[in-house]
């Protein structure tokens, strides 16, 4: 078990190193930030000085080594755009994104689980078929379209929810939360719903498939034969059996949602990491882009490794796989 854990972690570190290299190579190609950092009246001489001090005139190899050693220490430098430490900058935005993603995940579980169970046990009824059909529409609607429509209906026409931002936030240590104020909670609703839509349909479909499988199994047939009430079979036995894959998928998808949130954040002007990233992309704020890529990959890889190890703890047969 120890060997397995160590090998998984070593593997994760390798992947992270490769991502860091990739980040550097990509951004080395991405363009010249100096012209944006200065104003109309700055002379060519001063521009060249800045380029020199940023180390943009050094050889690519030198810059690369510098980047990787610094990144390994968690030092991604200072944002070209607003002169702040990149890690602090991302740290400030992280709570906004995480709250959005967690609330969206919660919504998707609360809505997706019952719908999945319903479509499985009432299979073939007109309403479950319509739900199945709606779920396809759910995965097909681009999330930016969903966002635009929500703003149009609930903010502009009905005027019952804010269209942008996070509302009032309360600072708890370095964490800023919008969950404790009425305006913060109101601002969270539309983006969270927009982000959760895709996830709802995924969970609903997964639960349905798992439920159908379990319902076909012998122990359910046996339980039925023993005369245990249906709802008890469904919710006590069948649902419990299919929770594991649902929880796994939900956990692994948190990483994906954090990345996908960048679209929702852009539409709703949600001050999270994703919006920071998109702004960095337009501005060619290379340190921020590099750090964002590395952090997202880290979350991804960490979640995957964690799930792998957890599974190996539960099911020893998996330890020798791969």
């Amino acid at each position: 078990m120890l060997v397995f854990t160590i090998s998984r972690i070593a593997n994760a570190i390798m992947v992270m190193l490769a991502v860091a290299m990739l980040a550097f190579v990509i951004f080395r190609l991405a363009g010249d930030p100096v012209e944006l950092m200065v104003n109309e009246q700055m002379t060519q001489e001063d521009r060249d000085n800045i380029r020199e001090r940023l180390g943009l005139n050094d050889g690519t190899a030198t810059q690369f080594v510098r980047f990787v050693t610094n990144a390994a220490r968690g030092d991604f430098g200072i944002s070209y755009r607003n002169g702040q430490d990149v890690l602090t900058l991302i740290g400030e935005r992280f709570p906004a994104t995480l709250e959005l993603v967690l609330v969206a995940t919660l919504i998707s579980l609360v809505v997706g689980l019952p719908l999945g169970v319903l479509t499985a046990i009432k299979r073939g009824r007109w309403y479950t078929e319509s739900l199945q059909f709606l779920s396809i529409i759910g995965v097909s609607l681009p999330s930016f379209v969903v966002g635009i429509l929500l703003i149009l209906v609930f903010s502009v026409v009905l005027g019952i929810a804010p269209s942008f931002g996070r509302g009032e936030v309360i600072q708890i240590g370095w964490w800023s939360t919008g969950l404790l104020t009425p305006s913060g909670r109101a601002a969270l609703i539309l983006p969270a719903v927009a982000l959760s839509l895709y996830q709802i349909t995924l969970i609903m479909r997964l639960v349905r498939a798992e439920m159908l499988e379990v319902l076909r199994s012998d122990f359910v047939k046996f339980a039925r034969a023993r005369g245990i009430p249906r709802w008890r079979i469904y919710f006590r036995h069948a649902l419990r059996n299919c929770l594991m894959p649902v929880v796994t998928m939900t956990a692994m998808n948190v990483g994906s949602l954090i990345a996908f949130a960048l679209i929702t954040e852009t539409v709703f002007q949600w001050p999270g990491m994703g919006m920071l990233f998109i702004q960095a992309v337009t501005f060619l704020d290379i340190p921020v882009m590099a750090a964002y890529l590395c952090i997202i990959s880290f979350i991804f890889v960490a979640l995957n490794t964690l799930v792998d190890i957890t599974y190996a703890v539960i099911d020893p047969r998996l330890r020798n796989a791969r």
């Binding site: 001090r53 430098g77 200072i78 944002s79 607003n82 002169g83 702040q84 602090t88």
Partner: peptide, 10 residues
């Protein structure tokens, strides 16, 4: 920015 130091005035 080049010196990678944050300013208080920022």
């Amino acid at each position: 920015v080049g010196a990678k130091v944050e300013g208080y005035a920022t």
